Amino acid sequence: MLLALALLLFAIFGSNVILGSMGMGGFLGDVSEMLILLAASIIFVAAILKKEAAEKQSNKQQR
């Protein structure tokens, strides 16, 4: 769930960058673009930490 949200936010960021590089003008401003990328990064890290904690818990239960 968190990874899907991070992917969606990164896709929004990426599409804005692509549109801007093609000269069509991006739909996000500079600050909005930065906040979208920051949110995508934070959610991605949260997803990785959650997955790591679940793996650690499953390893602990196997012992």
Rank of each mutant, 00 (worst) to 15 (best):
G29M: 01
G29E: 00
G29T: 13
G29A: 09
D30R: 14
V31M: 07
V31F: 13
S32Y: 05
S32C: 05
S32R: 08
S32N: 10
E33N: 10
E33Y: 06
M34G: 07
M34T: 14
M34A: 10
L35R: 03
L35H: 06
L35E: 01
I36P: 02
I36V: 15
I36F: 13
I36R: 06
L37I: 13
L37K: 11
L37C: 04
L38F: 07
L38S: 11
L38W: 04
L38C: 10
L38P: 02
A39N: 03
A39C: 11
A40S: 14
S41Q: 02
S41A: 07
S41P: 08
S41N: 02
S41K: 00
I42N: 00
I42A: 04
I43R: 00
I43H: 00
I43V: 14
I43D: 00
F44C: 03
F44W: 07
F44E: 01
V45Q: 09
A46Q: 03
A46R: 01
A46N: 01
A46D: 00
A47W: 12
I48D: 04
I48M: 08
I48G: 03
I48K: 05
L49E: 06
L49I: 11
L49V: 15
L49Q: 08
K50V: 07
K50M: 01
K50Q: 05
K50A: 08
K50T: 07
K51W: 02
K51E: 02
E52V: 15
E52P: 04
E52S: 12
E52C: 11
A53G: 10
A53H: 08
A53I: 15
A53S: 12
A54D: 02
A54C: 11
A54F: 09
A54P: 02
A54I: 11
E55A: 15
E55F: 13
E55K: 05
E55D: 14
E55L: 09
K56Y: 13
K56T: 09
K56N: 05
Q57T: 09
Q57F: 13
Q57P: 03
Q57H: 05
Q57E: 08
S58V: 09
